[in-house]
């Protein structure tokens, strides 16, 4: 069979290109039947995989403080809506590129889903934490969801309001000064909230200005995610209070960002 040309407009994704190009000798070998399939799974990583991320971190107690366990179980109960028909032989695992396709379709406003998927096996975690997946996840869902926002009253500490049920509770001790591109600038005497940050071991907070990044995929246990916390030495020059889309705010909070000393920061 001659190799088949692709239509001009149709095959924009590299995946499709590859499928078409490799048709005479397809990229994936046919799967072995049922039982032997678990053996090929698991340690599938080769030399091209990103380096393994070491989980143990002396500062993890800080993080535990940052995400206290929720005492409100109601929104997080398992749905149980999908019944999977039991099969006699367990299904062979999906190939990696299809796992990626499935994970891409996780709801972006439910970051806990991706965290749990990352804990399924190392291969999945490498996939989810990789830059390629993060980029595709952003492209796939276009507009990032709003997981919550900071409210700052006059002179008080800011507090975080969740708008998504599975967003972690964020406890901050400071004033949210501004936010941009998913980063929140906090003004505080110390930096009590440092979610998954990777500062150097000798780092000492100065001036107490910290930027924390929280994206919808940003709470995964990996330094490769966009969840670094960095010092901002000239915060006021770099960050300004955000302009918020009025439509996304609850009615009672609309217009608050125009207040002189109180404004809201988006957490996206």
């Amino acid at each position: 069979m001659p190799p088949s040309p692709l239509p001009a407009g149709g095959a924009a994704r590299p995946r499709e290109n590859q499928i078409a190009r490799d048709r005479p000798s397809p990229p994936r070998p046919s799967r072995p039947p049922g039982s032997s399939s678990t053996a090929q799974h698991g340690h599938g990583g080769g030399a091209d995989r990103p380096r393994e991320y070491r989980i143990s971190d002396p500062r993890r107690s800080l993080r535990r403080h940052a995400f206290p366990r929720s005492t409100d179980p109601s929104p997080r109960r398992p749905q149980g809506s999908v019944q999977v028909r039991p099969t006699l032989t367990p299904p062979p695992p999906l190939p990696e590129d299809l796992v990626e396709e499935v994970l891409l379709r996780f709801p972006p406003d439910d970051p806990a889903c991706l965290v749990r998927a990352a804990l399924v096996c190392r291969r999945w975690r490498r996939l989810i934490c990789g830059p390629r997946f993060r980029r595709r996840f952003r492209e796939f869902h276009r507009a990032p969801p709003m997981l919550g926002f900071f409210v700052t009253n006059l002179g008080d500490n800011s507090f975080f309001v969740r708008t998504s049920a599975t967003c972690p509770r964020v406890i901050i001790n400071g004033v949210a000064v501004g936010a941009r591109h998913g980063r929140v600038l906090l003004r505080t005497a110390a930096i009590p909230w440092r979610p998954l940050h990777r500062l150097g071991p000798n780092h000492q907070p100065e001036e107490g200005a910290a930027i924390a990044t929280c994206t919808s995929t940003g709470f995964l246990p990996s330094s490769q995610l966009e969840c670094c916390c960095a010092l901002c030495r000239q915060p006021r020059r770099r960050l300004r209070p955000p302009r918020l889309p009025q439509r996304t705010l609850p009615r009672r909070l609309r217009g608050q960002q125009q207040q002189r000393d109180g404004f809201l920061c988006l957490l996206v």
Binding site: H41, R63, P92, V120, C121, R123
Partner: peptide, 28 residues
Amino acid sequence: IREVFNIKNDYTKEELEEIRQELAWAFY
């Protein structure tokens, strides 16, 4: 998920426990 999708768990118990404690909010 592992059970339904027939995936072998290649984490050690300690690793899992550590991550679970770290990200307790994601588990119900």
